[in-house]
Design a protein around this nucleic acid. Structure first.
Lengths: 226, 226
DNA sequence: CGGCTCCGTTCGGATTCCGTAAGGAGACGG
DNA sequence: CCGTCTCCTTACGGAATCCGAACGGAGCCG
């Protein structure tokens, strides 16, 4: 769940970043309207938290710009309490409006309420190699148009590799990403799962062409094995 | 555009009715929680404006009851300004929370913002699989042309799955969507409801073809089980 | 060639997870 | 007050999954 937070007050911005990160959100910060707009475009967030009192590009203009191409929920934060600005912001496309100062737990509850309304974003890519299709949106893997059953651990490893094509993933990275930050020593089970994945996805498991071992370092997913 | 307005303060209720009617809404009034619930059930409104401080059936209980079978937007009005009640109301399924006293134009703007998010009841899809038809607009389920009785919780789980066909829904997602954001541990009751749904909808509950279990991960609704 | 490291593979037990049944707590209507 | 409905806890058998241990092979170096 990715959130863009825009506020020109550095202290407030930092506080929001810490709070939201602590509650499990991925946070992209922006210190002015221009950065907010860029972050909203580049980051594909699930929510935008926008302070209205920003220099440069005005907060209301940011709402207009975002609404020009996106329906992402926008939660406005503002120091102004007069209803005129609330009405203006809401009618331009904002979904909620909170006045400073605000209670942190209320902000979090309003964020949850907005995210709850969001249809699950399905801009997840579909990765294909050989006769295998990995659909990250539906969490489904098909090979030659027939479904492949993966265990949860197998899926997590495959997802990690597939999301980073052509990049080398160290064994340590896989262990911490899949088994948690405390697992750094491999007593052999990682190789087991890689073997399992190859058995299920590679044409010739003994000579893999897409799930490549980099000796001494880790593994690499190659979409188009020559 | 039909709105249910519930408030035990007759003066406030009348004022809201006049204001909303003047702005082109059809208004159904309710003077207590029981009437509010009845109106929300009978009237099929596009929005519910709910005062929390009502005698008899509590406002929070009304939210629970409505959310048991409907996703209609709920805007809460309350005299209490403490964040605890705001958080509670929002997490139970309210979409917005306005404290008294409030500016009329702000309330109207928030209503517009909520209605804007709502898909009209007409474009709600009707999902069909095997001999079962799930009508998301009327919230009815029929099997072989005869109606199927679902409990509120059963309906919510089915709706979540049916709205995301072919997609894997994690157990955690179901719990937070159906039971609220603070429920993350399943002590077994989720499996119960899935078994119940399968018993009511699957031809062979022991070998489901549409409500599929993905071991260790979650559940998946497959419209066309081959 | 011998020793070493690293990787792939097989096997099987321990653990977790799932489906099902039985039943209690609480709300509701009569 | 009592029957009904819904929700949820507990318990248990069976299946799926996880992972430790051990073995063999490939590559590297002296």
């Amino acid at each position: 769940m990715k959130i863009v937070v825009a506020d020109d007050d550095r202290q407030m911005l930092g506080a929001l970043r810490i709070i939201l990160t602590a509650h499990g959100y991925d946070v992209l910060v922006a210190a002015d309207g221009r950065q907010a707009l860029d972050a909203a475009i580049e980051g594909h967030p699930d929510l935008v938290v926008l302070d209205l009192g920003m220099p440069g590009l005005d907060g209301l203009a940011v709402i207009d710009a975002i609404r020009g191409w996106s329906t992402v929920p926008i939660l406005v934060i503002s120091g102004r309490t007069d209803s005129a600005e609330k009405v203006d912001a809401l009618d331009r496309g904002a979904d909620d409006y909170v006045t400073k100062p605000f209670a942190t737990d209320e902000l979090l509850a309003r964020i949850r309420a907005l995210v709850r309304r969001m249809p699950t974003a399905d801009d997840e890519p579909r990765v294909a190699f050989a006769d295998v299709i990995v659909d990250l949106a539906t969490r489904r893997v098909t090979r030659a148009d027939s479904p492949v059953r993966l265990t949860p651990t197998e899926w997590r490893i495959l997802e990690l590799l597939v999301r980073n094509p052509d990049r080398l993933i160290t064994r340590e990275t896989i262990l911490t990403e899949v088994w948690g930050p405390h697992h750094t020593s491999d007593s052999g089970y990682l190789r087991l799962y890689l073997a399992q994945l190859r058995k299920k996805l590679e044409a010739d498991p003994a000579h893999p062409r897409h799930l490549i071992t980099e000796a001494g370092m880790g593994y690499r997913f190659v979409p188009q094995g020559e």
